[in-house]
């Protein structure tokens, strides 16, 4: 809605650098959507006829779990932190459910997985919030702990065997109404919750406040340790949910399944305009960032480039977008 207003405003005037700068600063999501649109056009030019509702559905389906993990990064980055344990937690939770679904059942599996994720988040939160350990180190250490325990669990469960539950396959890879990914049923409410939580609740404001100026927020009475503990618990539980979708999407239960999504999740949040130094950003941009990354990797693979070239272009693009973003938002 706001998009239309801004575009009619800028319609008659020339799109000068200053205006672009203002637009970027006020609403980073608009230029990002522009970039996404360009990428969609590029996809169509490379392979005429590929862009369709089905294609869009496939893209969105692949982007949803990444967007959830990037949400963890967005929220922790707002406070000036980062969560490097999301990959390990997501893999662990998908794996735990896959091993428990045969015996104790799906509901128990989900509960156990999310409870373990919450405990991991609680420990990270205590480390970051009370002991003031750098979030990078705290979450890195926790990811080693989670990976180790997941491996132990794996060895113990070898004899019982495991399989991704059908419900997860439906949720992660299923499609309804012809092209709409079923994972949106989970993701849309989740995204609304995150956006409302960040913009409309006191807790969301506290996240921005702590990241923007920790001392000022402490002096104005914010108990940052409580905020941080809750934050890392939320982040870990979200990562656990993303793990369900990953295992459903790929139909694989492995203790390292989502590890490769860790760095892209940070990249998606960065491209989406969330500052890694804290205090600036939002979830809207992050979602578009996750979509952009997904479309780019689809373009690169449809061009038939080898994995090597894809990685190089991927990295170059992250720097390019981040640099453009820094350039226009800084005076």
């Amino acid at each position: 809605m706001t998009d239309t207003v801004t575009t009619t405003d800028s319609g008659p005037k020339r799109l000068t650098t200053a205006r672009l700068r203002g637009l970027f600063r006020e609403r980073p999501i608009i230029p990002l959507i522009g970039l996404l649109a360009i990428l969609v056009v590029v996809s169509e030019l490379i392979r005429p006829g590929i862009v369709s509702l089905n294609w869009a559905g496939v893209m969105v389906r692949a982007a949803v779990p990444l967007a959830i993990l990037a949400g963890c990064q967005t929220m922790t980055m707002l406070t000036g932190g980062i969560d490097l344990s999301v990959g390990a937690v997501a893999s662990m939770s998908g794996f735990v459910v896959a091993t428990l679904v045969g015996g104790p059942g799906l509901a128990t599996g989900i509960l156990v997985a999310l409870a373990v994720a919450a405990i991991v988040g609680l420990i990270s939160g205590i480390g970051v919030g009370i002991f003031r350990v750098h979030p990078l180190i705290m979450t890195l250490g926790m990811s080693l702990v989670v990976l180790g325990f997941a491996n132990v669990w794996q060895i113990r469960m070898v004899q019982t065997g495991s399989g991704v539950p059908d419900q997860f396959r439906d949720l992660g890879a299923g499609i309804f109404l012809g092209f709409v990914p079923r994972s949106l049923l989970l993701f849309v409410p989740l995204a609304i919750l995150i956006i409302l939580g960040l913009n409309r609740t006191g807790y969301g404001r506290l996240l921005y406040a702590i990241g923007d100026n920790p001392i000022a927020s402490r002096l104005s009475g914010a108990r940052s340790w409580q905020v941080l503990i809750v934050l890392y618990v939320i982040s870990a539980v979200l990562a656990g949910v993303a793990g369900f979708l990953y295992s459903g999407l790929t139909n694989v239960a492995s203790v390292t399944l989502a590890d490769t999504a860790l760095l892209p999740s940070v990249a998606a949040a960065v491209i989406g305009g969330t500052s890694i130094m804290g205090g600036r950003g939002g979830y809207g941009g992050t979602m578009v960032g996750a979509l952009i990354l997904t479309v780019i990797s689809s373009i690169l693979s449809s061009l038939g480039y080898p994995e090597a070239v894809r990685q190089i272009l991927f990295g170059a693009l992250i720097i390019f977008v981040a640099a453009a973003y820094t350039r226009v938002t800084e005076p």
Binding site: V266, V270, S275, G315, I319, A322, R327
Partner: peptide, 20 residues
């Protein structure tokens, strides 16, 4: 040159050098 935080630039270069 880009004034992007170190962690972001080197994260991106992680992909570039690994691709190389």
């Amino acid at each position: 040159l880009t004034r992007v935080p170190d962690i972001v630039v080197t994260l991106a270069m992680l992909f570039v050098w690994a691709g190389c």
